[in-house]
Design a protein around this nucleic acid. Structure first.
Lengths: 246, 246
DNA sequence: GACATCAGAATGTCCTGACAAATATCGACC
DNA sequence: GGTCGATATTTGTCAGGACATTCTGATGTC
């Protein structure tokens, strides 16, 4: 037996019935009339009381489930969710994200070679200037279209990174396979216009807007394991994030 | 007429039929058999071809809509989405960030007025089209320089928002003071070139790269409390985030 | 070329109905 | 008190149906 709900339906309203039900349940939750953990009447009882069909009630409930306000369980019932759970943000790579999004990412390695670290790269990787680090330049394609130009610098010795492996798998996947435990990354997101060389590589016009991301990734010992500077075609790429209040 | 899909159904499988349909459509999208923008067969045709009911087909499609793979429009049809990728970071406001960074943020309110919500704004704010919402246009300065042009839409009645208050405090600060408990926001980050009007307001040249952020913020009851469309001078602004491995 | 109208296409909403599956409860038995 | 089977409860899945609403394209008129 759930908490008694007062729900008014206006069948002359353009607002769909399922939505009216959902909004009034949400309002009852907001006002505390439905406390966290409280059970709602079962679907059939709710439908009868409101003079609606069960699919309509289920649609209203599903809407609130999607919003994170309700949780349902077969044989048990529908319940008001206990408060929001705090989450940390997730460190992923473009390659992982593209695959998860159902786009076929492919990669062309432009160059992969050891170089002496200049002052800036040495600072972010935590090595002495002049130290040999690995410099990587790639173009990332999605659905056959160039999407991003990726420059990465990595300390030497992290694993056998070859051009072929990098064309078949994402960088982070290879690092993980080599035992690197990436834990945290700092990233700066910005925008600028494309220069001639990168415009050519990305099949864009000069001056086209590019979304830029510069990132330094650290392992579980706090050591920098990768520094990346990526540019994305703004016409083909945007970043969607979910922000959470701490 | 949509793209031809090959879908095999196994009615002896414990996997629900709607789920089998959804997974095979997702697979076709991932393999490129359904390209971004491709139209699916209409619901009734799909149902007939697969020997399923329309509600079952609709449930499969809704599942993929929720996953961000498909988009539907009444009278038009169902289409494969141009894919997006997601990452999570902390919810803050530009004003908060600038103050924390020691730059003196100031704000000029260009306009603040109630307007009838168009279809798009109504959809993101969860209100009926035509409902009065508050539309806000501001320029944000940092260190005396224009930095960002901010458009915001808010449901009516969230609190006494005046132009003067908005020039003295950040929007999120005012909303919090009014008792709005912002918890989650979805944000899309992109880039484009400046048009003439915004170039003028931002003291930029036409065509200069702008960092764009479109955000919808929800309170602890899952209600949309703000929709913002912001553009930032890329020459003066970048976003820094910390990413964490799960 | 602009505008209005209309028909067709497709999704959105709501309804009735039935059976399956997961979980909780209850009573019998040891 | 613990175990087990039966039963009740509730959601999950699927089917069929109808009407409403939105959008698009074609057509006609000016």
């Amino acid at each position: 037996m759930g908490t008694r709900l007062d729900i008014d339906l206006d069948r002359s309203s353009p607002v769909p019935l399922y939505f009216q039900v959902a909004e009034q349940i949400a309002e009852a939750i907001r006002k505390g009339e439905l406390a966290p953990g409280a059970r709602l009447d079962n679907e059939i009882l709710l439908a009868e009381r409101l003079g609606l069909s069960r699919p309509t009630i289920r649609q209203a409930i599903q809407y609130l489930v999607d919003k994170g306000l309700l949780v349902r369980k077969r044989g048990v019932g529908t319940q008001v969710v206990h408060g929001q759970v705090k989450r940390s943000v997730e460190l992923t790579s473009l390659y992982d994200d593209l695959r998860r999004a159902g786009q076929e990412p492919t990669t062309r390695v432009i160059s992969l070679q050891p170089v002496g670290a200049d002052e800036e790269i040495a600072a972010v990787l935590g090595v002495a200037a002049g130290t040999q680090v690995l410099r990587l330049e790639r173009v990332r394609y999605a659905g056959g279209e160039p999407l991003a130009l990726l420059h990465n610098w990595l300390p030497a010795g992290l694993g056998p990174l070859t051009a072929q492996a990098l064309e078949e798998r994402g960088l982070y996947e290879l690092l993980r396979a080599a035992g690197v435990r990436m834990r945290v990354a700092n990233q700066r997101i910005g925008a600028r216009s494309a220069g001639p060389a990168e415009a050519r590589l990305l099949d864009e016009r000069r001056g086209a807007p590019l979304l830029t991301m510069v990132r330094t990734t650290y392992d579980d010992q706090g050591r920098a394991v990768e520094h990346g500077s990526h540019v994305y075609r703004a016409s083909h790429y945007s970043l969607e994030v979910t922000l959470i209040e701490r």
